[in-house]
């Protein structure tokens, strides 16, 4: 059984001018110890998916339907009290903005200790000792001194390390990282990605990585889910997805990224554009969600939504025209 199973997840928001279908029927699973990346552009529903798993969506105006099974238990049926016992304990989350997600008036030691005292019933002293250990684990120099400092005394990279320390304090089985390195500089991003890779081996938590950066995905993920306009359009292991993307949207995304080293290989070409804009999620889209921007669109696409089909072993895509393995081989 998978550690996390998300079944037909629908997160809709009521707005003055209609229902916003931010996430519209998404299925996926995460196995224990696995790193799964959810990628897509802004507004594709990737962050809402992450927030829905922890039920951090305010209801109303939000509404979550479907099933989110963690260790076989549907989190959507859990009481608030049960959810509190899960958040930060069995499932924890790292947010994008380390600046705003830490409490500015509490020392980092208090903030790391808080989850430990709450979930594991440690004493104040024991929690602080453990906080020092956690800071050491995430590679912060002089943890004894840093544990007594406030967030504003730390740099952006160190704050993100503190966020990771808080998230890992209770040895979660699942870690949801929502754009964990987007706000950071490249050299600091490299440090944090290295840390996440290293910690994954040591702690063994499964990671759901939410990002728009395909470079980051290629470096850390094992399996990738591509989302577009609230739906999953493609899913595959990281290698096949980058080598052989099946969905025109994934192909477009990869083509629109300039390749580092292009001046050396001489393959400097014009960037491929995906014309147009993401469709409004307030209207029901009868056909394929990508039809309005797809270079291969036909009448079939605008009328019938393509089902997610297995195009190759472990590689699914929602496109009428994506090639299947037999056809590719021929």
């Amino acid at each position: 059984m998978a550690l996390l199973e998300v079944e037909n997840l629908q997160t809709h928001f009521r707005t003055p001018d209609g229902i916003n279908r931010a996430v519209d029927g998404v299925n996926f699973h995460v196995n224990a110890g696995e790193t799964v990346a959810i990628v897509g552009e802004s507004g594709c529903g990737k962050s809402v998916t992450a927030m829905s798993i922890l039920r951090l969506i305010p209801e109303p105006p939000g509404k979550i339907a479907g099933a989110i099974r963690f260790n076989g238990k549907n989190l959507l049926d859990a009481s608030d009290k049960e959810m509190r016992a899960i958040r930060g304990n069995e499932i924890s989350m790292i947010f994008q903005e380390p600046m705003t997600s830490l409490n500015p008036v509490l020392t980092v030691g208090r903030q790391i200790g808080e989850t430990l005292r709450l979930h594991q019933g440690l004493s104040a002293q024991a929690a602080e000792d453990r906080a020092v250990e956690m800071l050491k684990l995430v590679g912060i120099p002089e943890p004894q001194r840093r544990v007594k400092e406030y967030p504003h005394q730390l740099s952006g990279g160190m704050r993100q390390r503190v966020m990771i320390a808080i998230a890992l304090a209770c040895n979660p089985k699942l870690l949801i990282a929502d754009e964990p390195t987007t706000a950071l500089d490249v050299t600091i991003q490299a440090q944090i990605l290295e840390l996440m890779r290293d910690l994954k081996h040591r702690v063994g938590a499964a990671i759901v990585l939410i990002t728009h950066d395909l470079g980051v995905v290629a470096e850390v993920a094992e399996r990738v889910i591509v989302m577009y306009a609230g739906r999953k359009v493609e899913e595959a292991a990281v290698g096949p997805l980058f080598r052989n993307p099946r969905h025109p949207y994934t192909q477009g995304l990869l083509g629109s990224m300039p390749k580092l080293g292009s001046s050396l290989t001489g393959e400097e070409t014009r960037l491929a554009e995906i014309p147009g804009l993401v469709p409004s999620l307030k209207k029901k889209i009868p056909g394929c969600v990508f039809a309005s921007r797809c270079p291969k669109v036909t009448d079939l696409c605008t009328q019938y939504a393509p089902a997610l089909e297995e195009k190759a072993p472990g590689h699914v895509a929602a496109c009428h025209y994506a090639l299947r393995e037999e056809v590719v081989a021929a």
């Binding site: 490249v186 050299t187 991003q189 490299a190 290629a218 290698g239 580092l260 080293g261």
Partner: peptide, 11 residues
């Protein structure tokens, strides 16, 4: 170091 730190989309 900057060049080596940029993640490349090649798993």
């Amino acid at each position: 170091a900057l060049l080596s730190a940029v993640p490349v989309p090649m798993p």
